[in-house]
């Protein structure tokens, strides 16, 4: 497949996420959201948290879904894994997507389990023709089983592999070209990885298949040092979006035009209104692009 289709809008019968700012749905905020119905473009949830039989999680999500567009974001599919995809997990995903009809489904270019153990982390893979073929097989299988295009998220990584023969952006562009999947451009991951590997984040973003971007993620990072004293940024999701990431986001928007944008926060969750403030900042930049891009 050589035609690149913006995947947020390409699935038959699936409406796109609006080109607005969205927030991750946190259990602690559900009550306030349902009571006050804040102007948020969409909400995003981690798929695995809702793979339970019943109870308050489903009740809350159904009520949120009745009022807002939804993005379902998987963290456990292990698309970059050496092992075959877990078909039972795919079945659970299919059921979840059938139940909530989200406007977007995304997963990571990473692996998270091996040999029967699940590590609950997004682990790195080498960029080689062999891993490319395997990732494409896995993305093909996901899209076939879920009967919709998925968005694949660029990773945040802390190491590189001596055996890599492809660049990361080149690898991602090839997955998008071969499978027709979309790209979830995680701007924080791009900034973190490029800092960690001594490369230029703007050049990286420009080398990605930007025509396939269906959603953007923004988040905060933590700062450490590597053994040589160089910055080693950690994709922690535990702090506000950094100024450098806002700047890279504005740079990406200049090339993309308005794009659905999620503020991700998974640790040290602040009051809902604080996250809403970050969403407002993203909407300000989105509106600026809206005016700048000719109709």
């Amino acid at each position: 497949m050589t035609t690149i289709v913006p995947c947020a809008s390409s699935a038959a019968g699936v409406a796109a996420l609006p080109a607005r700012a969205g927030l991750g749905l946190k259990p602690a905020h559900v009550r306030q959201i349902l009571d006050t119905r804040p102007a948020v473009g969409f909400f995003e949830v981690h798929a695995e948290n809702y793979m339970v039989a019943g109870g308050p999680f489903h009740e809350h999500l159904a009520r949120i879904r009745a009022h807002y567009p939804l993005s379902i974001h998987g963290v456990g599919l292990s698309i970059g894994g050496e092992e075959p995809l877990d078909e039972a997990h795919l079945d659970r995903l299919a059921a979840l997507l059938g139940r909530y009809a989200p406007q977007a489904f995304s997963e990571h270019l990473a692996w998270s389990g091996h040999g029967g153990a699940f590590f609950n982390d997004l682990l790195p893979l080498p960029w080689t023709p062999q891993t490319l073929a395997r990732v494409c097989d896995h993305v093909d299988r996901v899209q076939e089983r879920l009967r919709r295009p998925m968005l694949l998220e660029n990773p945040a990584t802390y190491v590189e592999f001596a055996e890599s023969t492809l660049g990361e952006a080149e690898f991602i562009a090839e997955v998008v070209r071969r499978t027709g999947c979309g790209l979830l451009l995680d701007v924080n991951n791009a900034y973190v990885s490029c800092t960690n590997h001594g490369s230029d984040a703007r050049a990286y973003v420009q080398a990605l298949p930007l025509g396939a971007v269906g959603e953007i993620h923004l988040a905060g990072f933590a700062r450490q040092q590597d053994a040589a004293g160089a910055d080693l940024l950690i994709d922690s999701h535990g702090s506000p979006v950094d100024r450098a990431v806002w700047a890279l986001y504005a740079f990406a928007l200049e090339r993309l035009g308005p794009t659905p944008t999620l503020i991700e926060r998974d640790h040290d969750i602040p009051p809902f209104d604080t996250l809403l403030g970050e969403a407002r900042e993203a909407e300000r930049l989105l509106a600026a692009r809206d005016e700048a891009v000719p109709a």
Binding site: Y158, V159, G198, D226, A228, I234
Partner: peptide
Amino acid sequence: PGLVAWNGSDPALRFAVYRNNVVVSL
């Protein structure tokens, strides 16, 4: 084996980030 860093720094310290992420998250 096979892990590298752009600046030639010891990859063990970078790998330790993954070790820490896994244990802390669980």
